[in-house]
Write a protein that binds this DNA or RNA. Structure first.
Length: 574
DNA sequence: GCCGTTTTCGGCCCGACTGTTTTCAGTCG
C-alpha cells in the first residue's frame, strides 16, 4: 500500500462523509490528512512501522489508528462501514460541474438517482426541475455538465491550454481599460493537467473588461457573466474564467486566484495569527486601521513574515513553514539546463536526422546533446539493433565535425526487459557514451516483480539514467506500480540519475516523487524525450516546471553541470 | 477530526455567483 493509495482512501472517506452531511470540519480533517500523506517524502509504511505517523501535521490519534490498520492489513473496517449503502455512481455525480454533496444527496434521496446515467434520464424527463431547490436552469446545467464530462473527462494537458490562455492575455493587454493582466490558477502553478484557465485583470472599469471578454473572437459560448467575473467556453472547448479587480488589489487577487485552495486556507490562517484578515482584495488589519499597500505578491508574503513563495510551490505541502524559516530552496531555472540526453532521430521514431537535431540544439544554446534512439526490443518504434547502433556512429561523427561548438554524445534509450536485463549486448552498451534505460513493455507488471526488474536494470554498469520511471501517459494511462525505496537505493548506489521527462504527456517522474528522489540524495536528469526539432526545448519548457514543483534546485540536476564536469563526473568518460 | 506560548474546549478562510428564493443555500475557487 503506497502513499498514493492511502491518499486515495482518505479522500474517499472525506467524500463519503460529505455525502452523509457530516460536520464540514471533520471532512476537512480527512482532506488535510490526504494532502499530508501525498506530500510525505518517505514511504508511509516506514512511518507506520516506526510509529512516527502522529508527528505528521494533520494526522492525529484517530487517523493514525486508521492508517496503521490500513497499511498493516491492507483493509480498513471504518471505510467498509461508511461505504455501506453508498452507490459508487454518486462519486461520478459529484464530478458534474455545479453538483456538490448536498445536491447529490437530495437527488439520491428524492429520486433514487445514483449514477450519471440515471441522473441524465431524470433530467431529460423533467423530474429534477420539479424538486424543491432545483429548477429548469439547474436541470439544463446538469445535462450540459454531463455532456462535457463525457467529452473531455474534464481535464486537459497544460501544453494544450497554455497557447489559448496566452492568446487571450495578449488580447486583453491591448484593451484600454486593462491596466494589468496575468494568468492565475493551476495553470500558473504549473499543474500537469488543468480543468480551466483563470485570468486576472486589474482595471478601474470592470464592465468594459467584461464586454471585451464577451467580444473576444475566440469565444464559443458564455457560461456566466456578472459584474466582475465572466466565464466563457472558447472554440476548442476550453473554459476560461476572467475576473476583474481594482489595480490596487491586483497583487492580493493574483495571490488569491493562483491558489491552491489549500495554500490559501493556510495563508489566511497565518494572516489571522498575525492580526490580519486576508481576502482577495486586501490584507486587512483586524484593529480596523487602514490596509497596507501591497504592490506585489512578494510584498504580501513579506508582510506575513515569509520569504517569497513561488507559484510552483503553492500546494500547502510544507512551503509555508519553509518560507517562515527562510529555508526554501533556490529553484532551478530553464537557463540552468546546459544540455539534454534523451533525443530521438529518424533512425528510430524521430522526425529529423542526427545533424538536424544537433543544429537545433546548438541554436538553442545547449552545450551538449545526447542522441538516444530506441533499441531493438522497441520494434514498434523501429528500434536499433547492435548493428544499426554501430552504423549510426558515422552519422554522429559527421554531425560532430560539422558542429564543433556543441558536444554530441552518442547513446541509446535501451529497453528494460521483463527480467530486468537490458536488450543489447554488454560490450555494445559499454562502448556508448551513455545509456538511458526505460520500460516500454509490460508496464502493468505486478509490483514486486517490477521493483526487482528496475533494481536489476539500475545495476547494469553502462546505465546512467532511468527513463520515465512511472511509465504513465497523462489522461491516458496510469503509473506502473513498484516500491520506490529499493529503486532509489539502487540508483544511489550505482550513481544513476532519475529522469524528469519533459514530454508534455509524460512529465515523469512527477513532482510528488521528485521530492522523494531529492530527499534521498538521488540526482535528476531533465530531458525533452524529443521526437522532433520543435520538442527539443521541452526539458526547459516543461521538465523544469515539474522539477520546480518538486522543490529541485540546479544542484539536484546532473545536466545543469558544465560540459567538462558533466562528462567526467556523471558520464564518467575519459 | 485536528490543534494548542490566551491550550484539552471551542474554534476551524472568505467572497462571488447562481438559481432559487423573497433572504438564502449551495457551489466554486
Amino acid at each position: 500500500m503506497d502513499n498514493r493509495e492511502v491518499e486515495g482512501v482518505l479522500e474517499e472517506i472525506a467524500q463519503i462523509l460529505e455525502l452523509k452531511g457530516t460536520n464540514t470540519f471533520k471532512v476537512r480533517a480527512y482532506q488535510n490528512a490526504a494532502r499530508a500523506v501525498a506530500s510525505l517524502e518517505e514511504d508511509i509504511g516506514v512511518l507506520v512501522a516506526e510509529k512516527r505517523l502522529s508527528k505528521v501535521r494533520g494526522i492525529g490519534k484517530s487517523i493514525q489508528e486508521k492508517l496503521t490498520e490500513l497499511v498493516q492489513s491492507g483493509e480498513l473496517k471504518y471505510l467498509e462501514e461508511i461505504r455501506e449503502g453508498i452507490p459508487a455512481g454518486l462519486f461520478d455525480m459529484l464530478r458534474v460541474p455545479g453538483m456538490g454533496p448536498k445536491k447529490t444527496k437530495v437527488l439520491w434521496d428524492e429520486l433514487q438517482v445514483s449514477d450519471l446515467q440515471s441522473l441524465k434520464a431524470a433530467c431529460e424527463d423533467g423530474r429534477v426541475a420539479s424538486l424543491k431547490g432545483f429548477g429548469k436552469k439547474s436541470q439544463d446545467k446538469i445535462l450540459d455538465g454531463i455532456a462535457h464530462l463525457a467529452e473531455t473527462a474534464g481535464r486537459r494537458l497544460r501544453s494544450q491550454v497554455l497557447p489559448f490562455a496566452n492568446a487571450l492575455v495578449a488580447y486583453l493587454k491591448e484593451v484600454d481599460a486593462v491596466e494589468r493582466v496575468d494568468v492565475a490558477g493551476s495553470l500558473r502553478r504549473g499543474r500537469e493537467t488543468v480543468k480551466d484557465a483563470d485570468i486576472l485583470v486589474g482595471s478601474l472599469d470592470a464592465p468594459a473588461v467584461m464586454k471585451a471578454v464577451l467580444d473576444y473572437e475566440g469565444v464559443d459560448s458564455v457560461i456566466g457573466s456578472g459584474g466582475t467575473k465572466t466565464s466563457v467556453r472558447l472554440k476548442g472547448g476550453l473554459q476560461v474564467d476572467v475576473r476583474v479587480v481594482k489595480p490596487e488589489s491586483f497583487a492580493c487577487a493574483l495571490a488569491y486566484f493562483t491558489g491552491s485552495k489549500e495554500f490559501n486556507i493556510a495563508l489566511r490562517q497565518l494572516a489571522l495569527e498575525q492580526g490580519y484578515s486576508l481576502n482577495e482584495y486586501f490584507l486587512l488589519p483586524r484593529d480596523g486601521s487602514k490596509p497596507p499597500t501591497i504592490p506585489t505578491e512578494d510584498a504580501l508574503h513579506e508582510r506575513l513574515g515569509l520569504a517569497y513563495i513561488e507559484p510552483h510551490l503553492r500546494e500547502n505541502t510544507g512551503e509555508i513553514a519553509a518560507a517562515r524559516g527562510r529555508k526554501l530552496p533556490t529553484l532551478i531555472q530553464p537557463a540552468d539546463v546546459q544540455g539534454v540526453l534523451h533525443v530521438h532521430t529518424r533512425w528510430s521514431d524521430g522526425a529529423q536526422s542526427v545533424e538536424e537535431m544537433v543544429a537545433q540544439a546548438e541554436a538553442l544554446g545547449y552545450a551538449y546533446l545526447g542522441i538516444s534512439d530506441h533499441s531493438e526490443a522497441a520494434d514498434y518504434a523501429n528500434g536499433l539493433s547492435a548493428e544499426r547502433v554501430r552504423a549510426q556512429r558515422d552519422e554522429v561523427e559527421a554531425a560532430r565535425e560539422k558542429h564543433p561548438k556543441i558536444r554530441v554524445f552518442h547513446g541509446i534509450e535501451a529497453d528494460i526487459l521483463a527480467d530486468g536485463a537490458i536488450d543489447l549486448p554488454d560490450d555494445l552498451l559499454e562502448s556508448l557514451d551513455f545509456v538511458i534505460a526505460s520500460v516500454h513493455m509490460q508496464l502493468g507488471m505486478e509490483r514486486e516483480k517490477m521493483t526487482q526488474r528496475l533494481v536489476k536494470a539500475l545495476g547494469h554498469p553502462a546505465v546512467r539514467v532511468l527513463g520515465h520511471p512511472l511509465g504513465r501517459k497523462l489522461l491516458q494511462r496510469g503509473a506502473s506500480q513498484f516500491d520506490w525505496e529499493p529503486v532509489l537505493d539502487a540508483a544511489l548506489e550505482h550513481g544513476v540519475a532519475i529522469e524528469v521527462n519533459g514530454h508534455p504527456r509524460r512529465l515523469d517522474a512527477d513532482w510528488v516523487h521528485i521530492r522523494r528522489i531529492r530527499a534521498k540524495g538521488v540526482k535528476l536528469c531533465l530531458n525533452p524525450d524529443a521526437h522532433s526539432m520543435g520538442a527539443l526545448d521541452d526539458a526547459r519548457t516543461y521538465a523544469v516546471v515539474e522539477a520546480r514543483r518538486g522543490w529541485a534546485s540546479a544542484g539536484d540536476v546532473v545536466n545543469t553541470l558544465p560540459l567538462e564536469r558533466f562528462e567526467r563526473e556523471f558520464l564518467r568518460l575519459g
